[in-house]
Each structure stands twice: as C-alpha cells, then as structure tokens.
Simulated assay, not measured.
Amino acid sequence: MVGAGVGGLATAIGLRRAGWTVTVLERRSRLERYGTAFGLHPTAQAALDRLGLGEALRARAVRYRSARIRRPDGKVLAALPLERVERKAGRPELLISRPYLIDALLAEPDRLGGTRIVYGQRLTDPDGLGADLVVGADGINSAVRTARFGTASGPRPVGAVAWIGIAGYETGVYGETWGAGRFFGMTPVEPGRTNWYATVPEAAAAAAATPDAAAAQLRAAFAGWHEPVPQVLADTDPATWIRYELRHLHPALPAFVDGVGRTALVGDAAHAMTPNLGQGACTALLDAEALARAVAAHGRAALPAALRAYDGERRRSAQRVAFGSRHLHRFMTARRPALRDALLGLLPG
C-alpha cells in the first residue's frame, strides 16, 4: 500500500480483513491531522459499515440535514437536497472532521493489526517492492500511477484557488453562497465549531507573502457579502487557514488497474476531482471497500480477475462523479451569474 491517507488506510483495513499481510508506505515523516470536514454520503457510510468502521465514525460525526444556496446579498436561491438524500437512503448525510476520520481508521489494533506503516518512504519503483499487489493511494501526484500508467493523465489546474478553515463557534447558517466567479460555504463539523471553505479565481488570488496579507486578500474578495461570511473570516486566525490550488486528474484514466493484475489505484490517485460535490473522501472509501471485497471474493490465486472486477465496479462510477464535480464547479463559478441564479430560483427553496 502506497499512501496513508483516507483511501490507503481504509484499503489496508479491508485487505487485512481479507487475510492479507499489508505494509503501508507513507512519504511523510508522520501522519498530518490537517484539514476540516469531510462529507460522508450514505453510500460511503454503508461501505464503512462493511469495513467494520461505521459505528466508530458515527460516534464523532454530525448530521447534515439543512442547507441553502444563497446569493451574496443573502437571498436564498435553493435548498441543497439533503432531505431527499436522507429519505431515499434511510440515513442522513454526515460530516466528520478529517483528523477524527484518520484517527478512527488508525484507532483499534484489530483493524490494522499486523500492518506496518513505514514513514518517510518516497516511492520510485513499484517493481522494487516485491509485493503480490501494489495499491496506489498516494494522491493526485501519485508515483504509482506515473510508474504504471505513464503521464498522459495527470494533475491539471482549473484556474481557481481555495481556502479552508474552522470558526470557533456555530454560525447556524449552512450551505453555500455563490457569487460571480467565487463561492463561500459553511457546514457544521462538531459542537461549537463551523467548517468553512472559499474559492476565488486564480487571477484574484496571487500568492501572498504572509498569512496576514493572504487574509486581507480573501477578506476583500468577500467584502460586502451577507453575514456571517465577513464575520467568519474576521474571527478566524489566518495562520490556521489552508490554501491550495484546485486541480483535478485529466484526462480520465482508461483503467484503475494494470494489465498484469498486480497494481490498483484508489482515491485521488485514480480520479482526483474538484471538491464541489463533496465526494472526494466518499469515492476513496467506496474504492477501498470494493477493492478489498473483490480481492476477498476471488482469492489470492485469481488476483488479475479480482482487479478487473474492481475496475468494472468502480471506474465509470467514480469518473462520472469527477466529471459532474468539475462541471458543477464551472456552474458555481460563472462570471455572469444572472442566468445561473435564475435557474437555481426554479428549484425548491
């Protein structure tokens, strides 16, 4: 296993449950518990249940049941379909802090028991590992993908920069506000805190020399927007904000597995996407559970068939989500939003 993020750890747990001996290689010197909230769709929650992780995750997650899409002046344009998702699936969307999710994956010895996590390992040659199966869970810049599948597919910028952070209070105003070329979102994450995220065009977000300069830049981008957007940015410490360039994997890979049946990709290594649908962690968890299930069902002697089954189950589904997220990003960040807002106004509010 290459990569000790959400997808890598979940895959390691699934393979251990299937009777495999697993070693996880992680390029960082330690696991970094950074980040804010992950959304867990009911399908991802079901995958976690099959991995034996559902109860641990639900203990720290919060339910996400009501959110709205607004204009910068605060006018509500539409409701996010959270209630419809819950009615259809029989369980609500959940939100969980990324550090809690990582901790839950690492928590109990019987999940990762016997699994070695080797830190500070930067992979150069998957063939040199001598493993029966190599799983690339090493993110959008995947060394496993490059080694096995070449560079035709790779990280591509989408022309926007994002920030994420945590406010030390509950705003009570959740959902997203869509402006011209930019948007701002807020979700619950745990009692007494609010997860927030913001995206602006790359041209309006030149790299700032200091956190204070970056804060001034972002606050200016959302000046005059409805409360509590300006207040959230005023009240949170810029030193805790995370800034990153939005990228996705393009073009889509022709396969998530190699032709000889010894390598598979999961998560961002296979289908990195923009965050607009909030499905990055969900698709990684679905990949992990599907790969482990396919390997368990086919057995060690039929590994190529197992990987083909995994690819058949996950590739088109994950790539549809990635495609939808990219196009939603374009819709959300329209530079002339009047038509977009009019279309949203036709939806239930």
Rank of each mutant, 00 (worst) to 15 (best):
A252F: 14
A272D: 09
V257Q: 02
R262W: 01
R247A: 09
D268L: 13
D258T: 06
V260F: 02
P251S: 08
I242M: 14
V266L: 15
A252Y: 08
G259S: 07
A255T: 15
A270E: 13
A269G: 12
V266G: 13
P251N: 03
V266P: 13
I242H: 12
D268A: 13
H250M: 05
G259E: 12
E245F: 00
A269Y: 13
R243I: 07
G261Y: 05
W241F: 06
V260H: 08
A252L: 08
I242Q: 15
H248Q: 13
I242R: 14
E245I: 03
V260D: 15
I242W: 08
G267F: 06
R247P: 04
A264M: 00
G259Y: 03
A252K: 06
I242F: 12
G259T: 09
G267W: 13
L253G: 02
H248M: 07
A270R: 14
Y244I: 02
L246Y: 03
R243K: 10
E245S: 08
A270F: 14
I242Y: 10
R243D: 03
L246P: 02
H271Q: 14
A272C: 12
F256A: 03
Y244A: 07
R247D: 03
A255R: 15
A252T: 08
E245W: 00
L246E: 01
H250S: 15
L265N: 09
A272G: 09
A270D: 13
A269D: 10
D258V: 06
G261K: 05
E245C: 01
P251I: 01
A272V: 10
I242N: 10
F256K: 01
R243M: 05
I242P: 03
A269W: 10
G261C: 02
L265C: 00
A264H: 01
G267Y: 10
D258N: 09
A269S: 15
I242V: 15
R247W: 01
D258M: 02
L249S: 00
L265Q: 08
R243Y: 04
P251A: 09
D268K: 07
H271A: 13
L265H: 10
G267S: 05
D268S: 11
V257M: 06
L265R: 11
A255K: 10
R262C: 02
A264G: 05
L253R: 12
I242K: 11
A269R: 14
W241A: 00
G259N: 01
G267L: 11
V266M: 13
L253Y: 04
Y244E: 00
R262I: 01
L265W: 10
L246H: 01
G261R: 05
H271V: 14
A272H: 08
V260T: 14
D268P: 11
G259W: 03
F256H: 10
